[in-house]
């Protein structure tokens, strides 16, 4: 069963704490605080009990934002904490998580490829290998709502 107080160590950092189905805790943060939040979870629950499971980028075209969700599995507490942050759609930039968790690698490369979010400090980002070459050369990010793919 999800424990609603799993987000407790993040209370000071968070703008807001919400719930998502099925029993996930969503912590809304400023973009620059994501890394700190992850570190706090590690400190609180132990290094071996917390890992970055996946990164989900969603294009919210009508709001002009891209929403970045970092799903962190706190498996000693049997629940997920979602570190959620919003970045500008016109110039999507966010600090890389590679410095604290190498697991961010696959997710960051993918999100850059499909949504065009630049992860500052990640030297491995690369296009044209991601989506087929003809699409990448046009500078199209397929998962954007106006990509026309």
């Amino acid at each position: 069963m999800p424990e609603s107080d799993v987000g407790e160590p993040l209370k000071e950092l968070a703008k807001e704490i919400q719930e998502m189905k099925v029993g996930r805790v969503v912590v809304i943060l400023d973009p620059e605080k994501v890394e700190e939040a992850f570190r706090k979870l590690q400190e609180r629950y132990g290094y071996l009990n917390v890992y970055l499971s996946t990164i989900v980028g969603t294009d919210l075209k009508s709001e002009g934002k891209i929403r970045m969700d970092y799903y962190v599995n706190v498996f000693s507490e049997s629940t997920y904490v979602v570190l959620r942050t919003f970045i500008e759609r016109d110039d999507p930039k966010i600090k890389t998580m590679l410095n604290i968790s190498k697991a961010a690698f696959s997710g960051e490369c993918e999100t850059y490829d499909l949504l065009g979010v630049k992860f500052e400090g990640n030297p491995y980002l690369k296009r044209s290998f991601f989506v087929p070459k003809d699409v990448a050369e046009k500078g199209v990010f397929p998962l954007r709502k106006d990509s026309g793919v």
């Binding site: 071996l48 890992y51 498996f75 049997s78 968790s101 190498k102 697991a103």
Partner: peptide, 26 residues
Amino acid sequence: RDIINYGLLGPIARASGLKMDARLQD
């Protein structure tokens, strides 16, 4: 430690002594 750091999952993690299983968790 590497399993957690690189986010490896499933049988690989369990073979390294980590008790992680979504069947149990969810």
